[in-house]
Design a protein around this nucleic acid. Structure first.
Lengths: 145, 145
DNA sequence: CTCATGTCAGATCAACTGAAATGG
DNA sequence: CCCATTTCAGTTTATCTGACATGA
């Protein structure tokens, strides 16, 4: 254990993230999906059909990556691109029935990941951890002019 | 806010990490350094001269990345590679006096980053957060055979 | 003219992989 | 022969940049 790093939030966070990210990747890959796909399906389910730009903003995904992910989700039949008659630049993205089923399937995968990741804490501690980290993650990111 | 993601530990962690990582990168870049460099200097200061392999294990850095970082630290005069007479495969890495000064300078940079990152929490909450995340980050990573 | 949108190629960065050379 | 160490080249993944064509 390196004493200079042991109590640094950024170090602990980076290690915890590495572990959570690894578990998440592993679980989604085993389920034949990806975290980006889940995030996109979740946004579509909650907010209904959206343009790609709006979808990206809600999901926190770069527009160019939205394009790539929708290519995959489209060919899997989970989302459909439709022309937007009101604005011909836009494409309306719609969740298909198969996409909704996929989302429910991935909900279970994600639930298992959370449980596995939080296992070292008891349930009161888990709630407290979520409360605190939510406040830390709500802050704006580093300066971006 | 996407309700399906809002309370997921992995999502919150990923956003908190993104912010912490951004702040950290920004601060170290402004100071003309990098997080890897700090970690290496910190390990050398605490454990004295080490082989690169041992240094990498202590700092949690891949051996090939240790090589690259030591090229930089060496040319800046902060660390020195020396032949190990006991095992001619090894190189003993020694912290120079300039490297020790650099470490102290970066201590201040890192301290400011922690303070800035944890600012949304009061001091009792900060301590609790560190305690909880330390337990989460101590767990082993995803399965690696 | 300006801005937004979707697309594409590629830059960047951290983390890692595989292989080679050297030596225990 | 097998394993450890250092180095190099290159892969992977997420994130982001810049450019472009289209159209509001």
């Amino acid at each position: 254990m390196v004493s200079r790093l042991r109590d640094q939030a950024s170090w602990l966070l980076s290690r915890a993230h590495l572990r959570a990210h690894g578990v998440l990747q592993e679980a989604f890959a085993a389920a034949g999906s990806r975290p980006y796909h889940y995030r996109i399906l979740a946004v579509l389910e909650e907010f209904g059909p959206l343009s790609q730009a709006e979808l990206g903003r809600r999901a926190g995904i770069d527009p160019s990556d939205v394009t790539t992910s929708l290519d995959a989700l489209g060919s899997l039949g989970f989302a459909a691109r439709e022309a937007d008659p009101l604005d011909r630049r836009r494409k309306r993205i719609r969740l298909t029935d198969a996409g909704r089923d996929e989302l429910l399937r991935l909900d279970a995968v994600l639930g298992a990941v959370q449980k596995r990741f939080l296992a070292p804490l008891n349930s009161a501690e888990q709630a407290e951890f979520l409360r605190l980290i939510a406040r830390l993650s709500d802050e704006p990111g580093p300066s971006r002019p």
